[in-house]
Amino acid sequence: MIIVFSLFLLTMMVVVALAVVETRNLFAAAMLTGIFSFLMAANFFVLDAADVALTEAAVGAGVATVFFLGAIALSSEHEHSASRKFGLALLAVASTAVVILLGTMEFPILGDGSAPVHQHVAPWYLEKTPELIHVPNVVTAVLASFRGYDTLGEVFVVLTAAIGVLSLLGFPRNNSEENAVNDGLSHQKILHIVGKLLIPLIILFGLYVQFHGDFGPGGGFQAGTIIAAALILYALLSGGDRARRQMPPRLLFGMACLGAFIYAGVGGTTLLLGGNLLDYSVLSHDPVHGQHLGIMLIEFGVGLAVASVMLTIYHAFAGHEHR
């Protein structure tokens, strides 16, 4: 049964991807990309990857679409030139296709429990996590502790993106006048009231995802994106100027830096306490408790950094004035 569902989702994804490539309207392409991401997220869920599904839904379908729309609003909605370099593209694509398809013939079948991936390293994580780290969600344990060094890099990737967007577009300027031009959707009562009603609930959900990440799907990254989505909704409803007055972009960027610094700082602290980098066991007398403390701290850093970076980037697009 599940395989039929999976086949349907995968085929739909190919169809949507083709539609994305074919449409000349960039607005439509961005919305279709959102649908593509939703299908992808559903597919991840079918494949038992709940954490990834949550992230893909929040990032691919949510934040990425918002960024695309923000950039399209500032640039252009239509593709003007026709495609070109067909020959080169077809050659590259066709040769790669043949090579990959030949290669897949010797891939392990989907769901094969005896595939090599399931024999080495992964069973160790599944077996040792309850004992060494004592959190139910193995994905969180691997992400935050066993492979915490990668996640450290991940947070800095996000921070680099914020630095890059700000250094390209500049900090959004604030319209200081009280009668700001842009008051968002506040004149549309229904949208305004329903939106305002939802924002606290979304933030609540975000906090649940943040602090429940040890026990169920979730963690700092997903939570940061969800909370950022709630605050972006607020900015849409009340107008960017008002949102930026209440939460200045410079403060947001400072919070992003702080979040990344917390993560790296936990690493620095473990060094100073005599452990290896990111060895949380030295943070407390009891190694397992130290792991808990370390994971909580770095997840907080990740959540803070991601939420602030997403908001910073949103405001950089939304509050950008043409020069």
Binding site: L152, L159, I163, F253, C257, A264, G267, G268, L271, L277
Partner: peptide, 17 residues
């Protein structure tokens, strides 16, 4: 071995501010 990584990472957010 990790100092060339962690020291610039720690200082980058500070430099940005």
């Amino acid at each position: 071995p990790v100092l060339p990584v962690i020291v610039p990472l720690l200082s980058a957010p500070i430099a940005a501010l």
